[in-house]
Design a protein around this nucleic acid. Structure first.
Lengths: 254, 254
DNA sequence: GCATTCAATCCCATATTATGGGATTTATAG
DNA sequence: CTATAAATCCCATAATATGGGATTGAATGC
């Protein structure tokens, strides 16, 4: 039933029940039942004339995430003091989402340069330092499945022509504290990314600083790379502290 | 299975599978199955140490709503030109969501006064002009069910001590083009609200202008009320035009 | 006022899946 | 090596979903 949400896109934000039933190979009564149930949950809403769109519950849940998600609250806390050292650069957090990566947090910076990042925007998994640093730290099994399913995209991104070389490329990236590269969504933008982990040591997200390419001369990069690595490390630590706080509450039966 | 999303709140953003299974009266294997499925859909995500939180798909869907939802795109178009006439007031849109109302859009206004409205914030259905104007325009059957389920809240809000007087109060509100009142979430704030309808004439949302109470003398209100009513009317018309555009495409088989 | 159309709900015979209690697996910590 | 926690798997049994069509309600056009 959750596939219903997948038919909605920026290009097609409004669907009739018949159209989405046809798209998902469902009978009319099943499609009506699913839409009714998703409307009751607030995930869809009627817009009149038999049309439905994504519903207000999504906006409400997104606000809950902004207000209280552990990763985002840690990021807000950690990144605000780092902004003054970033000039017109942008600090943002990306998280894995299925076979792609999503920007989930942007540090507020009134001086920021005007590029395409916005919260919620999906990005390819195999391009861009924000994505590839996450890819590199995925568990071996997940990496293998991604290679199997996307071997052409891996090759096109120059990450390896077969599994052994892809795997080696990923290992080499993991060996370094950060990854640099040109931003994929905008011309003339340079990015530095570092990984953020959960308390179990699994990759949770990446922290990236994006800045104009002309400012990225080799002398300027190192202090900024150190800032990104330190920021990612402190976000990881803040999340870890939250988890330990929750465990302590759990042990006490609260 | 969608009830799983309901256990998450700002107060408790992270849940273990056992805790949410207990909260929802589910067995451990059923709870694990639901969480696994919601993680695969991206609606939940693991945060390590057996904890789960709301997932990145919500952020992605919310961005789709911001970018392309008919109500929000119409609101953005219509409200931007009206802002200069609002001084430090805030223009925002609320939509019904179950038995409450949600702020779904705020017009960007750098001069705005600092009050509590933020996108995604739920509000009571029976208090505040933004909510009550929506309530008044709900279909009779829905109004009757809300009265049955919330008769105490209706009485406490001064909207009527029994069904006939509640119904009359709602009819009287419908007869006027707008509703005014003190904002419920902040002290010293005054609000003017008008209804937004879909193409079938059903209530879709409300448009509200919130401003400092001391600026709301009787001479200043009328032009601002006219602005709000006109803004709501034009949002309704813009949505209607979108629907007609979609119908035309549909007739052509596109 | 009637006929037509569209959106939405209801019905139910039949097919399919969900449930949960427990077993098992995997990883981590002591 | 043992214990624990998180997570997956198994399957007998119970419960629900499906879809094709009937029906309802509202709106539109003549």
């Amino acid at each position: 039933m959750l596939n219903v949400l997948d038919v909605f896109s920026e290009a097609e934000p409004v669907w009739t029940v018949d159209a989405l039933g046809k798209s998902l190979a469902l009978s009319r009564s099943t499609a009506y039942r699913y839409v009714k149930e998703l409307c009751e949950a607030g995930l869809l809403a009627s817009v009149g004339d038999g049309g439905y769109s994504l519903g207000p519950r999504i906006i409400e849940l997104d606000r809950q995430i902004r207000q209280s998600d552990p990763l985002l609250t840690a990021a807000g806390e950690v990144l605000a003091p780092l902004l003054p050292r970033c000039g017109e650069g942008i600090l943002f957090i990306c998280a894995p989402r299925g076979d792609s990566v999503l920007s989930v947090f942007l540090a507020e910076n009134p001086n920021r340069l005007d590029i395409s990042y916005s919260r919620g925007r999906p990005m390819p998994l195999f391009r861009g330092s924000a994505s590839v640093i996450i890819l590199a730290h995925l568990p071996e099994g997940r990496l293998r499945r991604l290679y199997r399913d996307h071997r052409d995209a891996v090759a096109a991104a120059g990450l390896g022509g077969d599994w052994p070389s892809f795997r080696t490329a990923m290992r080499d990236i993991r060996a370094k504290p950060y990854l640099t590269g040109r931003a994929q969504l905008d011309a003339g933008v340079f990015a530095i990314s570092a990984p953020v982990f959960d308390v179990d040591g699994n990759i949770l997200a990446s922290l990236t600083l994006a800045m104009p390419e002309h400012r990225a001369d080799s002398e300027a990069i190192q202090p900024l790379a150190d800032l990104v690595v330190e920021g990612a490390r402190r976000i990881t630590a803040t999340i870890g502290a939250q988890v330990h706080a929750r465990s302590a509450l759990r042990v006490e039966g609260i």
